[in-house]
């Protein structure tokens, strides 16, 4: 079913939102992703992913407080929706199933 499937980057962003819990907004998500994955990410990519996920219903958002460091602009905080959690679980289950289906011999580095 298209629309509920998660891309790799989307999944990471979604998970990060979960990790950050109450502090998940654009820049904090970006920093968290960069820290954990070790690769640099452009903020605009994070925003794009966030809006897409919100549109799919995996995330919900609310406007936060304005701070001086933001030039008087408010933050937008994101939270996982239950639908989002479900999607993450689905993705996790899919992976676990796939993992468990890999023959031992492959993982042992055999093959030929």
């Amino acid at each position: 079913m298209k629309g509920t499937s998660l891309g790799e980057f989307e999944e990471i962003v979604l998970l990060t939102v979960g990790v950050l819990f109450d502090e998940a907004y654009g820049l904090s998500i970006k920093k968290e992703v960069e820290e954990r994955s070790g690769r640099s990410v452009n903020l605009s990519a994070i925003h794009a992913a966030l809006y897409r996920l919100e549109e799919k219903g995996f995330l919900k958002s609310k406007m936060g407080e304005a701070t001086k460091t933001r030039g008087g602009k408010r933050k937008k905080y994101f939270n996982l929706t239950s639908f989002g959690i479900q999607a993450l679980e689905q993705a996790k289950t899919l992976r676990q199933n796939l993992w468990s289906s890999i023959p031992e011999i492959v993982l042992k580095g055999g093959g030929s």
Binding site: Y25, G26, L27, K30, N42, L43, S44, H47, M63, A66, T69, R70, G71, K73, R74, K75, K76
Partner: peptide, 30 residues
């Protein structure tokens, strides 16, 4: 509002860390 805010915040941090020029560059690129 959100994007501008995020960008601004990032810019300030970047300019502390890497200096103004690089921060401006990242800002522009973003």
């Amino acid at each position: 509002e959100e994007i501008e805010g995020d960008l601004y915040e990032e810019f300030l941090e970047n300019s502390d860390d890497y200096g103004n020029r690089k921060a401006s560059f990242i800002y522009t690129w973003t």
